[in-house]
Every structure is written in structure tokens, then in C-alpha cells.
Amino acid sequence: MCSMKTRIKELRKQHKLSQEELAEAVGTTRQTITSIEVGKYIASLPLAYKIAHHFGLTIEEVFDFSDLED
């Protein structure tokens, strides 16, 4: 499975949110947020939407799809 770069960590820092708080807000576990941040796990479309929506951004603004464009 390929990995995916995200801006979640950066956005979390901007919003002063911990992984636990973000996980609770989007209905997932802290471990899942950690794995998405380090690129070990690719979030599903609903979870990606929830995360992006939580920061008031679109999915493309949070997740980097440039690798898929090749």
C-alpha cells in the first residue's frame, strides 16, 4: 500500500489540537490519526472528509494527491 502526505500535523498545531482531541472530534482513535499523519495509513473518504471539514478545508487542501497524478 502506498503512503500519502498530509497537512494534518501542521493544521493541528495551528489549531492547538492534540491527536486525541482531533480523534475524538472526527470519531476515530488517536492511533489512527498518528498513522495518517506519518503516512502509514490512508484515511477512507468519509474520514478524510471529516478531518478536512473539521479544519474548514477541502480534502485536497489537507491530503496531498500529487503522487496519484503521475
Binding site: A23, E24, G27, T28, T29, Q31, T32, S35, Y41, A43, S44, L47
Partner: peptide, 11 residues
Amino acid sequence: YVKENDERQRQ
């Protein structure tokens, strides 16, 4: 609920 329905855990 979150623990049981976590998508990464399911995967």
C-alpha cells in the same frame, strides 16, 4: 463505539 468502529482497526 469509536474503538469498535475504528476503520484502521478494521483494516
